[in-house]
């Protein structure tokens, strides 16, 4: 990204007013659309969708094998289970007879969470990249892990509901078949798991760390990976919405008044009744 000489203040804002200088693209209605310097229809029309998506994010082209792995990163975590918190948003939208787009958009936005999804993905890839740099400079990985645990937590290890992650063997097998399992970040992620497994509260690698390691080995930065994983759970969401929408309205996870387990103050009189009407 080019940085303008002056990036703050009214002069800068005035210089940017009214028009946009873009390196990314433009549409010329009735003529053509330019996508990162290429005519979308003439040059890029044969790209599959994920290829175009990651090209849009990174400006780089990925090989067929790499694209197959990137596809798998999305496919293997698309679970149409309406209990999952992000999926439940889509399902509730269906049950409450909202629009499908609103339900899916809300569900996708919800996926940028702290205990799963967006935050672990980005923290995991950042940690693995930083750790690899530090180890390459001669630090011991055990010490890097110890410091990280001391300063914050390590995302990508452990799982909220079940410590075993059923997605990993499948993804590792595919990465092996594609010969994309030999990168330094994956090796390091596995070494981190070995270190964390020996602790009293053993933490096993989860999907975030494996996906992050594979993406880092494909050259993705944390920002690029953040954008890449945005639709990672998407394919599992429409089934949840569709089924909820097919049921009678309001029929998804209904809660009776007794299902609220109230733990607050007992009934009391509103103070100053009549004074602030």
């Amino acid at each position: 990204m080019t940085t303008p000489e002056r990036t703050h203040g009214p002069e800068f804002l005035r210089s940017q007013a009214g028009s946009l200088k873009s390196r990314m693209g433009v549409c010329h209605p009735g003529d053509k659309a330019i996508f990162r310097g290429h005519d979308l229809h003439r040059d890029l029309r044969h790209m599959d969708w994920i290829e175009l998506y990651v090209f849009g994010i990174t400006g780089r082209r990925f090989s067929a094998k790499e694209l197959e792995l990137l596809h798998a990163l999305w496919v293997y975590t698309s679970y149409p289970d309406a209990r999952l918190w992000n999926n439940r948003v889509a399902a509730l939208a269906g049950s409450a007879r909202s629009s499908a787009t609103l339900g899916l958009a809300g569900a996708l936005a919800t996926s940028e969470a702290v205990i799963y999804g967006g935050y672990p993905f980005i923290r995991a890839i950042d940690f693995l990249r930083q750790a690899r740099m530090r180890v390459s400079r001669g630090e011991s990985l055990a010490e890097v892990v110890r410091q990280e645990l001391q300063e914050r937590r390590i995302y990508g290890y452990g799982r909220p509901i079940n410590s075993k992650d059923e997605r990993l063997p499948w993804l590792l097998e595919l990465a092996g078949d594609l010969e994309l399992d030999r990168g330094p970040h994956l090796k390091l992620a596995q070494e981190v798991e070995t270190i964390l497994s020996s602790r009293r509260q053993a933490l096993r690698m989860n999907y975030a760390a494996l996906a992050a390691a594979l993406a880092a080995d494909l050259g993705m930065s944390p920002r690029e990976f953040h954008l890449f994983v945005f639709p990672a759970f998407l394919a599992g969401m429409p089934p949840c919405l569709v089924e909820a929408a097919q049921r009678p309205e309001g029929g998804l996870f209904p809660l009776s008044c007794a299902d609220l387990s109230y733990e607050g103050p007992a009934p009391r009189a509103w103070p100053g009744a009549g004074k602030r009407q």
Binding site: G18, S19, S22, R23, G37, H38, R60, R61, F62
Partner: peptide
């Protein structure tokens, strides 16, 4: 708004088989 395509380096951004 107007848009001006700055294509000075867009071609260079495309790398095959990264």
């Amino acid at each position: 708004f107007a848009i001006e395509l700055d294509d000075a380096d867009t071609g260079a951004a495309v790398k095959e088989g990264a």
